[in-house]
């Protein structure tokens, strides 16, 4: 069978589908000071599965932690229009479980173009393989 670390090189999704791959990628992002990217990506996935009674509070927490402060990597990466869309959603009584989907897509695109290829060339990944 193909070793997991070779699968990680197939796509970002293959990497993030694997626990060891996710942990190693997160360690790499920590070294670069941008682990918020992957934390936010998983927070968006988790948000979709969160029960409705917790959704309003969680949306505010995600918004405050990653988006409202413009100096963070997530906030700097996602588009202004996406940020205003989320800001408008957060205050509504009934939250759309997909309200972070566009932001998640933008963060994913950034990781695919930037941090994921760098990870595959990193000492951390090469040492692991």
């Amino acid at each position: 069978p193909t070793p997991p670390y070779l699968k990680w090189a197939e796509s970002l999704h293959s990497l993030l589908d694997d626990q060891d791959g996710t942990n190693l990628f997160r360690s790499f992002l920590c070294q670069e000071g941008c682990e918020d990217l992957v934390d936010f990506w998983f927070a968006c996935s988790g948000f979709r599965q969160t029960s409705q009674d917790k959704r309003a509070k969680l949306a505010k927490v995600i918004y405050r932690k990653y988006i409202v402060d413009g100096s963070g990597i997530v906030s700097r990466t996602i588009k202004a229009a996406t940020k205003s869309f989320i800001r408008d959603c957060v205050g509504k009584p009934h939250l759309d479980p997909a309200m972070f989907e566009q932001a998640q897509t933008e963060i994913q695109a950034m990781m695919e173009e930037n941090t994921y290829p760098l990870f595959l060339k990193s000492d951390l990944y090469l040492e692991y393989t």
């Binding site: 694997d18 626990q19 060891d20 998983f42 927070a43 988790g46 599965q49 969680l58 932690k65």
Partner: peptide, 20 residues
């Protein structure tokens, strides 16, 4: 860890892949 951090952490963890 306060409850907001806890809520966020649980949300992130719930979406992460489980051990093979």
């Amino acid at each position: 860890m306060d409850s907001e951090d806890d809520l966020l952490q649980k949300c992130i963890t719930s979406a992460m892949p489980k051990q093979r």
